[in-house]
Design a protein around this nucleic acid. Sequence first.
DNA 1: CCGTATCCGATCCGATACTG
DNA 2: CAGTATCGGATCGGATACGG
Lengths: 134, 134
Amino acid sequence: MKIRDDYTCPLEIVHDIIKGKWKTIILYQMKDGPKGLSELEREIEGITQKMLLEQLRELIEFGLVEKKSYDGYPLRVEYSVTERRGQKMIEAITIMQMIGVDYMLEKGMTDALINKGILSEEEIMRITKSTAIP
Amino acid sequence: MKIRDDYTCPLEIVHDIIKGKWKTIILYQMKDGPKGLSELEREIEGITQKMLLEQLRELIEFGLVEKKSYDGYPLRVEYSVTERRGQKMIEAITIMQMIGVDYMLEKGMTDALINKGILSEEEIMRITKSTAIP
DNA sequence: CCGTATCCGATCCGATACTG
DNA sequence: CAGTATCGGATCGGATACGG
């Protein structure tokens, strides 16, 4: 990814940082601690190894992710969210996650939420009752 | 924009909502109240009318923006952030704005910040002093 | 002032094959 | 387990012209 130097506003930069299809998902997946590559690949449904590595590299470039390599066999590499900028981004992503859930509830896409373990059936019952129009 | 129904996670949806180059900037520009089209066009540097309308339409589709038309002459149209989902998104965007500013400070892009009126010269002095390594 | 339509190069991303 | 390279279709976004 090319890093330009003619940005006219801060949000333009941030858009460049997270515009990739998988960036927010990757970051969110790392929110509770470091992850290995194959771990991420397993947990993120539909991503290819190529995309994962590509997007990780860009996240590192922008200071949102850190990489640590440990020699030995098997190879071990850990990717984690950076303390300063990365954690801040997680805050924003957490809000976006809420918006996504809100949208899915509105559209009745409850199955996906339950399957993914994002919400339990009871939680959905409670939420939909409280906001549904009788 | 096509709205799919096979989203596997909430963040995938949100990414679809804000992936456009101008979406976050447009929303942020409306954070303090309704805006007319030409107003937005004037305030957002570099955007074309085509892109502005296109992205606004998508933001409306996803329930982040509302549109109100007033007949008469000259025509008056108001775009505003929706109470529920839109305002929530503004929260996330505000954090992203902070990240962008942080990045610009780190890269020494202070001129752009001052020119845009995002930070004053004194504020930058204070910040850079407190985080700079002597 | 507000909105639509088209054309076209740039980029994104998925599939696939290969290396240490 | 971790990472690189290439190729090709789909999508994005800028320019530009036209209509209410």
